[in-house]
Amino acid sequence: MVKVALPELGEGITKATVSYWYFQPGEKVNEKDDLVEITTDKATFNLPSPCAGTLSEVFFREGDSVNIGESLAVIEEQV
């Protein structure tokens, strides 16, 4: 089980908004697939999947605000 957290995006950025999930819970993802798009005021940032597996849970919906470091999703790693 791999938790996907919102990484540091830059100095002074404490939160961002989830703007698009590329996958739904239950779907298979490959390592480095775009998993979720995050938006700050003037930038979009695509967070890739850290591993291959199944997206088992997402904790935020599109439009939700997320703090840096918070968990966005869980991926059941493929073995």
Binding site: K32, K42, A43, N46
Partner: peptide, 20 residues
């Protein structure tokens, strides 16, 4: 704000995307 202003008016705009 993001962008560049001259004498109170906007002269340049910025909008970006980042993947990986």
């Amino acid at each position: 704000l993001t962008g560049v202003w001259v004498e109170g008016k906007k002269i340049a705009s910025i909008g970006i995307a980042i993947k990986q």
